[in-house]
């Protein structure tokens, strides 16, 4: 199956945007991906082996977390997995200070 890699994680896949792996399930595919690119492991999984909360994995157009079998879902060679970190935020919370310099807002 093909796994789509988001831009921030391509530093760990030799800049590849997609990686081809073999595996009968989503979990097997992810395991194969990490086996081929070990540096990804810490970015995708917590120390106890669970997907990090901000890492979304989609099987084609379906969020794997909400599939009946979740990561144990069966996949075929034509399926696509997409790893997509979450994007969110907002003005709540205390203002930050830029690492390079503080800002003065007009």
């Amino acid at each position: 199956m093909k796994i789509n890699i988001p831009t921030p994680l391509r530093a760990f896949t030799d800049k590849q945007a997609t990686v081809e792996v073999n595996g009968a399930t989503v979990q097997a595919g992810l395991d194969a991906l990490v086996a081929a690119h070990p540096e990804l492991k810490n970015h995708l999984f917590t120390p106890d082996g669970k997907l990090r909360s901000f890492v979304n994995v989609y099987l084609n157009d379906d969020d794997v977390r909400y599939l009946p079998a979740a990561e144990a879902s069966a996949v075929s060679a034509d399926d696509e997995l997409t790893i997509i970190p979450s994007i969110a935020g907002g003005r709540t919370g205390r203002p930050g200070v830029s690492a390079s310099r503080a800002l003065c807002c007009r």
């Binding site: 988001p6 994007i87 935020g89 907002g90 919370g93 203002p95």
Partner: peptide, 10 residues
């Protein structure tokens, strides 16, 4: 904001 930073992963 601290929320923007906490939620930034890209």
């Amino acid at each position: 904001s601290s929320t923007d930073f906490a939620e930034a992963h890209w």
